[in-house]
Design a protein around this nucleic acid. Structure first.
Lengths: 337, 337
DNA sequence: TTGTATGCGTTATCAC
DNA sequence: GTGATAACGCATACAA
């Protein structure tokens, strides 16, 4: 049901207020050199006409559009949405809008979206990868600053924001030790993921500092699936490995772990504590018991990406990989005994 | 690392090609009244300068920006992302871009975003609600067409696109009957959700047409949670209700159902078939056995929303509530016995 | 303080 | 076929 009257322009406001467009512009933008009387006139006229400034036209002259592009390959939106929200917060939703483009893992489509975004003269770009491993740079000499989030760019000259997986691994183990566990196993996902390796390394380092070693002796790499969590746990149990805690590489794996433990008649956290990763609410709060997990602070990632972009708008952009800390979210699956 | 040279303009291209901006414009847009020679000259110049037309300026004169706003309240992005992708497809990602704004369930923030989007002169608006019940209209006399998706507008003069929950309920039951089930229970979520009521009604209607009634006699309303699925199934079992199939109101509920059945030593689908709703992959493919479910075709919802919007760009927009069909996705949890 | 004029990058309407 | 020129809506340096 659109009212087919075209929106009021600054000209309309100026005419109604009996001033020039210049005065009207100044008045609406709160600038000096305008009398209180005219200012009031203009404001009233704008009110009457429901004037809404054309941001496009403003951007044309300002050289800034107030838009940033969010180029993602994450089909589920599980990463993009929190990052988007963090960025929205940092920018201020009224000054900057986000153009979200989903490349669906297709490089051609990504190039297409990139061209479109540049032709829309976005002020900056945030690139969100689907998995936390280096990805091809979208290009060196782009006319706007680019920040890579979650998945770093393969080009070290780009600026990338990633989660600090090594420290996250340490945090996980420290927590389990603090709640009195000593025989800790680590069941994680696809070993080709750098994140899996990093978390495992952090875990091993922290264990060593406590004079402990991994229950079952080695990190159990597999797949990022519930099924793997189940079968890996099954292996642990049939081998009669002494275990009082399992650090899972993802919440989905943790779900499988819980399943297998329950199936074996073990109680969580009394017999075995379980710690997940991702803090994906649909998994952590609905499991029994509610699952402790490590949150990657994706909103923060988005917020920092926005801040780096804003800093780049005046001045130059940094480069390299910036590690952002994770956060432990304790729930019942890892309470002290 | 932005190359701080401002992007080439049509003027630059024209100058390099030794023609006027008018000719350059025509050549680049493939219009008539340009000699083959000049056209080639212009194209080459554009190539050399890596010319990318400024969509803002183009939109300013065309009166169309080629942008649509997607106003959502769905914090997880579970609804918005598929709808966004469907809309992208229908529009053609190169002609239309989507500004995604998350209101986070806050009406004030929603109004803010709305004003921003209008000031950016989006060509249209898609409003996605967080739950499939009528929501307040964002306003009657907006200067652009608006389509409500998933959650209909409370104002019947608006155009809303929703899933056909009644038919979905029928589809669910028909499928279960076709795989040989006769004692079918329905465990669903919050009864204040119209969608829950509609699906239940469809289920009851279809049962009646087959001369059947609900196992346990009544629809089991509760919460949209795994826990409710578990406890409701437990009630069914302790009451010794004869059941050979359970239609769950969501995949999460279905997960709880599966849990409880397994815990009672029952086998799925041999003893009891289980059908979910939402076809949320992280739940359906990782459960044991993989969960049959009903897909709301959210991509289609987005696609149709885009089509309605495009139709509205020339001509007027329809009104009322348009129901879109769901789709059954059979997996192992409901195979015939 | 106020208004006039110019430019932002394109497209479109004209004369030539 | 080609090229000035006028919009589009706004901001601003400059002149009044």
């Amino acid at each position: 049901m659109p009212a087919d009257q075209r929106p009021a322009t600054l000209h309309d406001v100026a005419r109604l207020a009996r001033v020039s467009v210049a005065t009207a512009s100044k008045a609406l933008n709160g600038r000096k050199h305008v009398s209180a009387a005219s200012r009031a006139e203009v404001l009233k006229a704008a009110e009457v006409l429901a004037y809404s400034p054309n941001t496009l036209a403003r951007g044309l002259v300002a050289g800034r559009t107030g838009m940033v592009g969010l180029l993602t390959s994450d089909l589920e939106g599980r990463l993009s949405i929190p990052i988007l929200m963090g960025a929205e917060d940092a920018f201020g939703a009224d000054r900057t809008s986000v153009l979200l483009c989903d490349a669906r893992g297709d490089a051609v489509r990504e190039g297409h979206h990139l061209r479109t975004l540049l032709s829309r003269r976005v002020d900056g770009l945030i690139v969100v990868g689907a998995r936390p491993d280096p990805r091809p740079s979208i290009g060196r000499d782009l006319p706007v600053p680019v920040v890579y989030a979650y998945a770093p760019s393969a080009d070290p000259d780009d600026l990338s924001l990633v989660t600090d997986n090594v420290t996250a691994g340490r945090t996980a183990i420290r927590h389990l030790v603090e709640v009195g566990r000593r025989r800790i196993a680590h069941i994680t996902g696809d070993p080709s993921y750098g994140a899996a390796q990093d978390r495992a390394r952090g875990a091993l380092d922290e264990l060593a500092e406590h004079g402990l070693k991994l229950a079952g002796d080695r990190v159990m790499f597999g797949a990022w699936s519930e099924a793997w969590g189940r079968s890996a746990t099954g292996m642990l149990l049939t081998q009669r490995t002494a275990v009082d805690a399992i650090f899972a590489g993802s919440d989905q794996i943790a779900r499988g772990v819980l399943d297998a433990l329950h199936g074996a008649g073990l109680e969580v956290p009394r017999d075995v504590a379980v710690l997940g990763f991702d803090n994906w609410e649909i998994f952590t709060t609905s499991s029994t018991p509610p699952l402790s997990s490590i949150d990657m602070n994706l909103e923060t990632l988005g917020r920092v990406a926005a801040e780096r972009l804003m800093a780049a708008f005046d001045g130059r952009l940094g480069s390299g990989v910036e590690q952002l800390p994770c956060r432990l979210v304790p729930r019942e699956s890892t309470t002290a005994r």
